[in-house]
């Protein structure tokens, strides 16, 4: 038995791992297309804008959310579909980090800056954008 790995085997390992890493990236890429997970405008209910957040296609749904500047936002998380580590929703730009569960699934904040801000779960498997205009 030789210790040196034949070139063929090394390349095989290489392609295998590349596929593994690549597939993870691929999943993420799928998530970030707006088709399927749609851009949703927050529904304006008078003095608060509401958005229903759930889980679809391996990501948050919707994952691009438009909100109005300086109007309080309320995100209602659907704990039936949002599971596992995705229950920990983080919106760093607004200091939000909440683990949602049944009975405690509302995230509220005031979008006091304009622009595009990200939100994600700890593993970055679920990611999305909030556009404040």
């Amino acid at each position: 038995m030789s210790d040196e790995i034949p070139l063929k085997k090394a390349l095989f390992y290489f392609v295998l791992i590349l596929l593994f890493v690549g597939s993870l990236f691929y999943f993420k890429a799928q998530q970030n297309t707006t088709t399927g997970n749609g851009t949703n405008d927050a529904v304006f209910n008078g003095d608060v804008q509401t958005i229903d957040l759930s889980f679809k296609n391996y990501n948050y749904y919707p994952n691009t959310i438009r909100v109005k500047y300086n109007v309080p936002v309320r995100i209602i998380a659907d704990t039936n579909t949002i599971r596992g580590c995705m229950t920990n929703i983080n919106i760093p730009d607004f200091g939000i980090s909440k683990t949602v569960r049944k009975g405690d699934n509302i995230i509220e904040f005031v979008p006091n800056k304009k622009g595009t801000f990200g939100f994600a779960c700890p593993m970055r498997m679920g990611t999305g954008k909030i556009i404040v205009e």
Binding site: L11, V21, M125, T127
Partner: peptide, 23 residues
Amino acid sequence: MLSPVIAGGAMALSSVSVVSNSL
């Protein structure tokens, strides 16, 4: 951002690419 699992995969990838490069 980088998920730890992807990070691990990238590391394994760098090890294998070094071996292949030597060959």
